[in-house]
């Protein structure tokens, strides 16, 4: 057992945490999967390496999975930390309820007990931009408007509306999603090209300025549709319009400043 596994086993055994969410080996050697550890024995199964790509922050707002009492540990990747911080900023999870932990090189466990420690850790561990994603966005940017429309129509015609993109996203935590609202029926609920595009536009717009760029939506899509390009592109737009700084509470499109450059605010 790794030293950090032992540390977590001890935390479960002595009640420091009631539950630890992390990763374990998956069905094939190429992948890992989320693991809920309720006891010290299960902690032996925890792994942390480059294969750990699920965004575990998605579980932090699922109350039915979490014990009512006690702290919940999360063995987190940087992407998980970024989403957890965003959830705190949006008042979706209280600081202190979760004990986020990062596993560094040589298996060193770093406890990140509050939003400030998360901010510092994330700042110290910047994630490299994915050149493939950047290249794809450039390719689509270079298209004419007609070509781009045809590209997305073709791509999203394949969507089956399984909503794995929504289910895998830590920031899609609404208990009643707009697609489930039928008075009025904002988005047609079946899978065909236009309703699929409506859904993705809505998903992406709701992510504007909030998306942390983890790529969980794309990773979850059973059809491997490159829907993360939409959120990524929108993040670029937000950065261009509002800068890369994010407010400590709320998000770019739901906060305002009295000295905003637009005059409608006054």
């Amino acid at each position: 057992m790794n030293n950090w596994n032992k540390q977590i086993a001890d935390m479960l055994a002595d009640g420091t945490v009631a539950l630890v969410i992390g990763y374990e080996e998956g069905s094939t050697p190429q992948k890992t999967r989320p693991l809920f550890c309720h006891d010290a024995v299960a902690a032996e199964r925890l792994v942390m390496d480059g294969r750990c790509t699920h965004n575990l922050a998605v579980y932090l707002t699922k109350k039915e999975l979490l014990p009512a009492e006690g702290r919940i540990g999360v063995v987190a990747t940087v992407n998980v930390l970024k989403s957890a911080l965003q959830l705190m900023q949006e008042n979706q999870i209280p600081e202190g309820r979760f004990l986020l932990m990062a596993v560094g090189p040589e298996g060193k466990l770093t406890e990140l007990p509050d939003a400030e420690s998360l901010r510092q850790y994330i700042a110290a561990h910047p994630l490299p931009d994915n050149p493939e994603v950047a290249a794809l966005i450039e390719k689509i940017d270079a298209m004419s408007r007609e070509e781009r429309w045809a590209y997305w129509q073709e791509c999203l015609s394949k969507c089956v509306k399984c909503y794995a993109c929504r289910a895998a996203c830590p920031l899609c935590y609404c208990t009643r999603c707009i697609v489930e609202d039928n008075r009025p029926q904002w988005i047609l609920p079946w899978a065909s090209t236009l309703p699929n595009i409506e859904w993705q536009i809505n998903r992406v717009m709701h992510m504007a300025g909030r998306c942390t760029g983890c790529g969980a939506c794309y990773a979850a899509c059973p059809l491997h549709l490159p829907i993360h390009l939409l959120t990524k592109k929108l993040t670029q737009e937000i950065n261009r319009e509002f800068g890369t700084e994010r407010p400590a509470k709320g998000n770019v499109l739901s906060t305002f400043s009295p000295d905003d450059k637009e005059n409608f605010i006054h």
Partner: peptide, 25 residues
């Protein structure tokens, strides 16, 4: 099911899942 996200991917790729919804257009 603890890790289940509650999406419909399994049902939609399944050759035998037949549950459906009826909707108005």
């Amino acid at each position: 099911s603890e890790r289940c996200l509650g999406c419909g991917a399994c049902a939609f790729v399944c050759p035998t899942c037949a549950c459906f919804d009826i909707q108005e257009d």
